[in-house]
Amino acid sequence: MRLSIYRYNPESDAAPRMQDYDIALGGHDKKLLDVLMRIRETDDSLSFRRSCREGVCGSDAMNINGRNGLACITAVSDLKEPVVLRPLPGFPVIRDLIVDMTQFFTHYNSIKPYLINDQIPPERERLQSPEQRERLNGLYECILCACCSAFCPSYWWNPSKFVGPAGLLQAYRFITDSRDTATRERLAYLDDVYRLYRCRTIMNCTEVCPKGLSPSHAIEQIRVALLRESS
């Protein structure tokens, strides 16, 4: 299998370059991450993140043949050669396929990604009806791999101000949670020309999410909630 991989080491390289690899696949090399691990057997200078290797941790998000995805759940058989691998677009590169996620997580922290409820806690737990619990489906599954935000043109244009699809999906996860009592504050924070309304409904986020979630739907729901709040 032929791959063309983005290489850049800021300590030794003046500029990024693409490096070609020809790899003979073994019987167990089913996913792209398997191929990358095989490359590492001969070239241990190639840097990339990976952890769970089964689409749960979101560490190995990268741009695969022009489309963001997780290397660990991308089937080798589905890829057109040469497989071009680049770091997540729009994110500062630390080295090779590793990007700096600081700003991404700053946005994530800004939406207060935790349950806020100042009421006296019940003896056992805060109960939800099946319908209330149902509303969290399609939201809580986000693994923060950043495939969506790194595929969003609005995020490329305003990475420091637009919260981005991942952050907004997470924001809606708490806005719609029946146990959370800070809905008004959350909505007030997002009612901003940059934080929420930079989204132009391009829907790349929904198109590219490796978990099949729909950040654009969540963003629409936040806008509807804001309308209800102000009317």
Binding site: L190, D191, D192, V193, Y194, Y197, R223, S230
Partner: peptide
């Protein structure tokens, strides 16, 4: 005071 509002422009 915020110079640019979000929702107002979106509704407009």
């Amino acid at each position: 005071m915020r110079l640019f509002h979000g929702q107002r422009a979106w509704v407009l």
